[in-house]
């Protein structure tokens, strides 16, 4: 990948970074349009696999951006895409947070906190629902597994890693999925 290409990749992802309200995944359709449609650096299958790969690995799911960059342009591509995705939104967040902290006692900050907190909880619930819908589809056993995991983690202090392992094992053995 040439230097102008890398710069273009960085700039495009930097722009997406500021538009990605609700997380990096919200920008995935736009990344597809750019990487697959406009540039032809990846094909459809590679694009989908990159997202699947990032989901296999632990960590923030924004890492699918790193994999996309890697598929498009090796290590330099991975760096360009990741920095592009992280820098603008990270700086914006940091500055907004700084502004908020300097006005901790201002009524507007209290109102933001009170009004937006329930919204955030609703969005987290939505994320659970969308993840479950996408991967459980209409398999009642997978839905049952989601329900059991929800109850156990909500009501007990069970080890979450054990639960994830159990889910993977049940799937690998063909009992669910």
């Amino acid at each position: 990948m040439s230097a102008p290409d890398l710069l273009d990749l960085f700039a495009r992802f930097a722009l997406l970074s500021l538009l990605a309200v609700g997380g990096a995944m919200a920008a995935a359709p736009e990344m597809h349009r750019y990487l697959v449609g406009e540039r032809g650096w990846l094909d459809d299958a590679r694009f989908a696999d990159s997202i699947a790969l990032a989901q296999v690995a632990p960590g923030p799911n924004v890492l699918f951006v790193t994999v996309l960059g890697w598929q498009a342009g090796g290590i330099a591509g991975a760096l360009a895409a990741t920095l592009g995705m992280m820098l603008p939104s990270g700086l914006a967040t940091w500055m907004a947070w700084r502004w908020k902290r300097s006005r901790e006692d201002a009524p507007v900050v209290a109102a933001l906190r009170t009004g937006l907190s329930p919204l955030a909880i609703g969005l987290t619930g939505s994320a659970a629902w969308v993840v479950a819908g996408g991967s459980n589809r209409d398999d009642p056993r997978l839905w049952g597994l989601t329900a059991v995991a929800t109850l156990l983690v909500w009501r007990t202090r069970i080890g979450m890693l054990w639960l994830l392992g159990a889910g993977a094992l049940l799937g690998a053995l063909g009992w669910v999925g």
């Binding site: 459980n136 597994l145 989601t146 329900a147 639960l163």
Partner: peptide
Amino acid sequence: ALAGMAAVAAGLIAA
């Protein structure tokens, strides 16, 4: 296996 893990992961987020 991934489907089983994703089902649990959705439960963790819901909880």
